[in-house]
Nucleic acid binder design. Structure first.
Length: 547
RNA sequence: GCGCCCAUAGCUCAGCUGGAUAGAGCGUUAGCCUCCGGAGCUAAAGGCCAGAGGUUCGAAUCCUCUUGGGCGCACCA
């Protein structure tokens, strides 16, 4: 609907001598200001240094709108142009909602674009914590938003299974195995002290027998490495599966070495003349592309820095044909962004290929006191703990209520105590109530069919709900473009408010206004229920029929 | 020292490529169940949008500085 308007407004702007000018067409907060409003008059007035209201009048005079689109146009305030959509338009959109059902809201704006969303990518050295939970909820929702807007999306998880931290993990597990048999195991400097490794050690002994601990240390550690990796990966996969997140691709860092891609990357960078030797190390000229300092690729002891496999990984993504690679990282890695960006620029990739969504850290508070998170000390709140305490729906919804660049305070005690008052229940309740209407009506929602008679919806609450439904598609597009899933939770909150108000103040089944209104309200309720379910589906939150 | 993010109601936070009277949830106060689910609804109180300058028709939004938080600045990952 607004697409036609926007196109026409752009044409008018061009005709008035300002092609491509940036203006806004959006739903005003105040219903008295119409269904959609634009600031185009004011924007043009600024460019021409004339009076905004006068310019708005010129814009309106130039408008050539098709019949049946808007019922009223008004110039108001400092120079806004307000539009009221014709009833036919609203009825048409509800018709589309009913016809397309669970796929309504999808659009084609991203068709032809292949997008890789890499998220969580936790080191396989311990259980997932709440920070990973935020990354999982965000990455999964972002991937869904991109799918809903027509992109071809791959959900990917990168496994850092090479490098020194895995060696330390192996030694730590070996030490725990010794401990478990009453011997004196020493967890190495910088090793992992979490109790989960003690549990893992017991499992190893159950599987391998107590003789396992008698192996020569070198062999024992070698086996512990594989065992620890396997067990940690399995646990992470269980956590993600139980959180409702499915990945399409897992890429192992070790596999990049095994396939020779890491070495190839070094050659590639050298061929481009981007490397040089100094102090016995191999350096990368990232300063030529915006980094504040050149970076070491190969240390003077001949080992490679983590940067090399990371570059190889992004080259791999590019080679797999993706148009976009979006990495979801914790904000503590933000210093790493310009580095990677400059490397990829140096390789000649288009600037919009690589993007990073930084998520500020989650601060966990329990009973008013901060819980410190440290894998090494072993004290932290795991994602599993959180799911067990507050449930998947509440956890996901809470993680997605805030923009990623805001810090998130997650008070576990509060979340537990206030479960009944969580916003997610408010939203889910709206869905359950709508389902209840159809139970009362004695027929499933899909059985209520026909065209919507907007004129048979007399209450303010009818109209308010109708207008909330109409903007859903635009909200999804905006959320996808801005990569802001929290726009969906904000919208859900508003939609649920409209639903509850409507439910309370009007009656569908046995509407006092008569059968025409009953039918129109059932159609409206069915459409609202569909939109609630679709929005929740994007977030990975369930839409229950009863609570 | 340098860089990134942040500061909005008592609390947790939306709103930010400049727009109409700055919003929501929780908490507080006062109402509403012969009625499709009261896990709900209606209303009230509550704000120098951290502070100070600047840009202009217009600033919570953009710029500068100050203050106060968070996080980074390795031949660690």
């Amino acid at each position: 609907m607004s697409q036609v308007l926007k196109t026409e407004l752009a044409r008018v702007a061009e005709r008035l001598g300002h092609p491509g000018v940036d203006f806004v067409l959006e739903r005003p907060r105040d219903a008295g200001h119409g269904d959609v409003a634009t600031n185009l008059g004011m924007v043009l007035a600024k460019l021409e240094r004339t009076k905004p209201r006068q310019m708005a009048e010129r814009v309106v005079a130039e408008l050539r709108l098709p019949d049946g689109l808007v019922s009223r146009v008004e110039i108001a305030g400092p120079g806004f142009i307000n539009f009221w959509l014709a009833d036919d338009q609203l009825a048409d959109i509800v018709g589309q909602i009913l016809a397309r059902g669970s796929s309504y809201g999808q659009s084609e704006i991203g068709v032809g674009l292949r997008v890789n969303v890499e998220f969580v990518s936790a080191n396989p050295t311990g259980p997932l914590h709440v920070g990973h939970g935020r990354g999982a909820a965000y990455g999964d929702a972002l991937a869904s938003l991109l799918e809903w807007t027509g992109h071809a999306v791959t959900r990917e998880f990168y496994i850092n299974d090479a490098g020194v931290q895995i060696d330390k993990l192996a030694w730590s597990l070996w030490a725990r195995v010794q401990d478990a048999l009453g011997r004196d195991g020493d967890i190495p400097e910088g090793g992992y002290h979490g109790l989960y490794l003690a549990e893992a050690a017991e499992q190893v002994i159950r599987e391998k027998g107590a003789d396992f601990a008698d192996l020569p240390a070198e062999e024992g550690v070698r086996q512990c490495r594989a065992l620890a990796l396997r067990m940690q990966r399995e646990e992470q996969d269980r956590d993600m599966a139980d959180f409702g997140v499915r990945f399409n691709v897992f890429t192992s860092e070790q596999s990049l070495y095994d396939r020779g891609m890491v070495e190839e990357t070094l050659v590639l960078l050298a061929e481009k003349g981007l490397t040089y030797e100094r102090d016995g190390a191999l350096w990368l000229r990232t300063t030529q592309f915006g980094d504040d300092k050149d970076r070491v690729l190969r240390k003077s002891d001949a080992s490679l820095t983590y940067l090399v496999p990371d570059i190889a990984y992004h080259v791999d993504k590019r080679n797999r044909g993706f148009d976009r690679a979006i990495d979801v990282w914790g904000a503590d890695h933000h210093g790493y962004v310009p580095r990677m960006r400059s490397v990829l620029a140096a390789l000649g990739y288009p600037p919009d290929f690589f993007d990073v969504a930084l998520l500020q850290l989650v601060k966990v508070v329990r009973g008013g006191e901060e819980v410190k998170m440290s894998k090494r000390s072993g004290e932290f709140v795991t994602l599993r703990d959180l799911i067990d305490e507050v449930g998947i729906d509440a956890a996901r919804y809470f993680f997605l209520m805030r923009p990623g660049d805001s810090q998130l305070v997650f008070d576990v005690e509060l979340a537990k105590r206030q479960t009944d008052e969580n916003p997610v229940f408010y939203v889910q309740m709206a869905h359950a109530r709508l389902s209840g209407i159809f139970r009362t009506a004695g027929k499933p929602p899909d059985a209520v069919t026909g065209g919507l008679a907007v004129g048979a919806l007399p209450a303010d609450q009818d109209q308010e709900l109708l207008k909330q439904l109409v903007i859903f598609r635009d909200v999804v597009q905006k959320a996808a473009q801005e990569r802001e899933p929290h726009r969906i939770t904000n919208y859900l909150q508003q939609l649920a408010t409209s639903v509850h108000g409507w439910y309370h103040h009007t009656r569908a089944v046995g509407a006092p206004e008569g059968p025409a209104t009953e039918h129109a309200r059932l159609l409206l309720g069915r459409a609202a229920r569909t939109i609630l379910a679709n929005a929740l589906a994007i977030l990975g939150v369930s839409a229950p029929d009863r609570m």
